[in-house]
Design a protein around this nucleic acid. Sequence first.
DNA 1: TAGATACGAAACGGTTCCGTATCGATAATG
DNA 2: CATTATCGATACGGAACCGTTTCGTATCTA
Lengths: 199, 199
Amino acid sequence: MTSTADAPRPPGRPRSVRADEAIIEATLDLLAEGSTIEAISVEAIAARAGVGKATIYRRWAGKDALLHDALRTLKGEPPQPSGRSVREDLVALVGAVGQNIDPRAAKIMPCLVPNVKRNAEHYALYQSIVEPRRAVMREVLRRGIRDGELRPDIDVEVTLALITGPLLIQRMLNWNPDLDETTLPARVVDQVLAGIQAR
Amino acid sequence: MTSTADAPRPPGRPRSVRADEAIIEATLDLLAEGSTIEAISVEAIAARAGVGKATIYRRWAGKDALLHDALRTLKGEPPQPSGRSVREDLVALVGAVGQNIDPRAAKIMPCLVPNVKRNAEHYALYQSIVEPRRAVMREVLRRGIRDGELRPDIDVEVTLALITGPLLIQRMLNWNPDLDETTLPARVVDQVLAGIQAR
DNA sequence: TAGATACGAAACGGTTCCGTATCGATAATG
DNA sequence: CATTATCGATACGGAACCGTTTCGTATCTA
């Protein structure tokens, strides 16, 4: 990828890899602390990264491009289910909702909410992160149907939202202050499995 | 309240009620269009309301106070269930999630997400809107348990999140582009009622 | 060593915003 | 009519920020 074989090193001082990383890290840090995307200033990023503003503008066309690249690094790989049981897999998957490899992701996510529905590019970025995770969970449900653990007539897409929604609103908004976030995944999955209707 | 009995009208030109309303309306309009709270400027509000900035600062101490008052007007009364059946009531309640009397509410809600977990005052305001609606839904569930429509051992608080979460993430984020928002309430409620486990 | 490029720091012009102040005009009371 | 407070409009000082440019310095290749 970064080999010099097909790209004969250009003359002059090469760009500092440390600066690249420091800029991205500083951006994510500030996003995790700050309130919204617009509130982050390039000057603050440069200061936090120990970098001149020119170094940033040498790499990115502007604030938007930098933010887009920074957010892309949060992607990460979706978790892989163990496959022992549908319940166990779902509890693990739903427990990971809104918690990527990077612990800052949970704090950054709310900052993006206002933009997701207004900016097509942000929405595409958001979906590119969420869809693979939905796909993993979808496959667990399909496996459960095949194996007879789940009823064959369930609405898979609705079930995805049913399992993900509660964790998302609780982690993003602390929607119900009386709900304990640590035990919530298991309780949600068990309730979805069992249903609430009298039989 | 606004009678002149115990408050002898002070001298001078009285404040324009039209200006009051125009300012609040302009604030909500801009919030519904704009992206985040910070992005709204007092000057834009004044221009939209056809009002001088001084007229705003004569009424509110600053932008925060104005925004707080404007958001409070979105509160409205929580919907009342018909009481015919648990299913019918839940479908109606969950259909109203994120949709207050004011149609702008659905667009404004995402703007507040970043602040809710960081600002205690915003969180209190948010809860003061959400809690009454949760209470109505909670009462429907308790009634269902009493009447034998629902199992007595269900986790009521989890069920609230289970029913609300999917609608909230779908309306706020369009979380799953393949889910139809109009049919979602009924599908969510039916799935929660039935459960997904094979029996 | 010479040339080229990147570096951090600093400054610049232009824009936006906040909160205050000041207009002449307006609308109420006494 | 005199008084008083508000009206919309406009300007101001101060601050923050963007994106660009210019420093002198550092680091690479040829």
